[in-house]
Design a protein around this nucleic acid. Structure first.
Length: 213
DNA sequence: ATCCCGAGGG
DNA sequence: CCCTCTGGAT
């Protein structure tokens, strides 16, 4: 006989908050601009790897204006270890230009404005809005959120946009920003892509994978 | 659907 | 060797 459905998004948040009392990004940043650049660089790359290159990057080109005037090849060499270095170099330089010219040198606190920047789509915009300005505009969906949300039965979709909608409809808006950070931590440490450590998962009892077997 | 791309783990 | 890493643009 099938067990009754215990699973509730509320219970997920409760357990995640207990396990991760201070959810935050592992990226190192000192300003909205640094968070934006670090997040663009973190595409398909570990935060550890990004944190190795950003100190040198920010020390050589501290703000949008200076980066907008940088030699693309010099930037490429600095960020090379993060991968996709040609695309990322172009994106952060152009983002610096646009922010310097159109947004008076300040990173916009607006979803549409952020997504007008090269290399910035929903995920990066959500990270910057919440991290830099405390705005819960949506749920940033990356590889970790996608995997953990699917395993938990919070969505059945593969499409990041639909996954975000599914999460936004089930969780309180006040939890959206932290939800991303907590699911990333869960996905990185426990609900890993390869060998998930289900035995030590704080959501073990409410994970559909182990209910109704 | 495909491309961009290096680093680390297994 | 293969898989994965807080994706985005074409």
């Amino acid at each position: 006989m099938k067990k009754t459905r215990i699973f509730l998004p509320r219970e997920v948040v409760k357990r995640l908050r207990k396990s991760y009392p201070a959810p935050a990004t592992a990226l190192k940043w000192q300003s909205p601009w640094e968070l934006l650049v670090a997040t663009i660089l973190s595409a398909q790359c570990t935060d550890v790897q990004v944190n190795k290159i950003t100190p040198g990057l920010f020390s050589r080109w501290p703000d949008p204006k200076s980066l907008s005037m940088a030699d693309p090849q010099e930037v490429q060499e600095v960020i090379r270890p993060a991968g996709f270095f040609r695309t990322k170099s172009r994106n952060i330089i152009q983002a610096g230009e646009i922010i310097n010219r159109r947004f008076q040198g300040r990173v916009p606190a607006d979803m549409e404005d952020l997504m007008s920047l090269p290399g910035v789509a929903s995920k990066t915009a959500n990270i910057v809005l919440y991290g830099a300005y405390g705005i819960n505009a949506g749920v940033a969906v990356d590889t970790h959120v996608k995997r953990t949300a699917r395993r938990l039965g919070l969505t059945r979709s593969q499409d990041p946009g639909k996954i975000e909608k599914d999460l936004m409809s089930q969780f309180e808006q006040d939890d959206w920003g932290d939800l991303n950070h907590m699911l990333v931590l869960l996905g990185r440490e426990t609900c890993r892509a390869r060998k998930p450590l289900c035995g030590e998962c704080p959501l073990f009892e409410i994970c559909p994978k182990f209910i109704s077997i």
